[in-house]
Design a protein around this nucleic acid. Sequence first.
DNA 1: AAATCGTGGGT
DNA 2: TACCCAAGATT
Length: 362
Amino acid sequence: MDAIAHSALSHAASRGTIAADLLAWYDTHARALPWRVRPGGNAADPYRVWLSEVMLQQTTVAAVIPYFAAFTARWPTVADLAAAPEEDVMAAWAGLGYYSRARKLVECARAVAAMGGFPGTEAELRALPGLGPYTAAAVAAIAFGQRAVVVDANVERVVARLFAIDDPLPGGRAAIRAATDAITPDARCGDFAQGVMDLGASICRARDAQCLICPLSAHCAARVAGDPLTYPVKPAKVAKPERQGRAYALIRDAGAGAQVWLVRRAGKGLLGGMRALPDDGWTARADGSATPPMPGDWRAGGRLRHVFTHFALALELQVYLAPPSATPPSGEGEWWPLAQIEQAGLPTVFARAAALIPRAPD
DNA sequence: AAATCGTGGGT
DNA sequence: TACCCAAGATT
């Protein structure tokens, strides 16, 4: 027997099932993440699992960690979160993005509190606000030990490579899900899901498949073919349109006690429900209508470029230093101390714009 | 069912 | 720099 054949044979002989090999790797390589800590007990806390999963939707672990810490410190239980004013939760979410998640979070917390706790089946979880196919399966598996087929972007990538599934997304998701179902174990389903996600995040990465240290390399069709980076096959991306618009900083009592006029955006749509500077309508048009919130001596206060998911915005800040007796605009809004603007819970685009407002030296 | 919905970090 | 990507859900 030549060396290569012998190597392949011994490799195959020491190979377990995909689930067994993955779980053995997870036992020694699991990332230490805050939502995996189980203070005061051995059972996973469904509240912490759910909260982390919602925060992690389309969001990196590094971005979530400080928000998870702040939320769990301020609202230790789902009942605490259910009792919180929605505006407080929206402000606490500011900067994390996809703000409809924050509203659904409150909706869900209140529904769960009214039910007396989280339901324990995937179907019941799926019916809660903000829980789609992924999150419902993840909470069922991780918090309740139920067998569920958990498919996120990491799982899609790992499984597409394992079985060399080359059907382009999103159509290819059916085959990927079926393959994931086939390798998902009955026992330790939550650990299996988290293990595949950890593998995808640390080894089987989008632009860097480290097959030499991968615990599943013996099972992997893409590794054999030598082209793991080609999976999963994704559709071509479309160019982002450019929009331009203005935001308005209406200032009164210019000086150390300066205040700025803030509004609350409509509940749905871009940055829905968030506190914000008034703007000229770039949300709905490629070009804003350039109408300030009130007449006045508006002057250019700086520019910034901000890239959203499906368009890029060139934003010009307009500033008006109104007299102390100025009557505020007729619409809803509030005066906010400029010195504490960072506490206002502005989404990032408006926080960046507010940072351009000239400050009076005190 | 294709479009919409944020942001920060890595390359 | 510009692009890619991340524990997707909703309509």
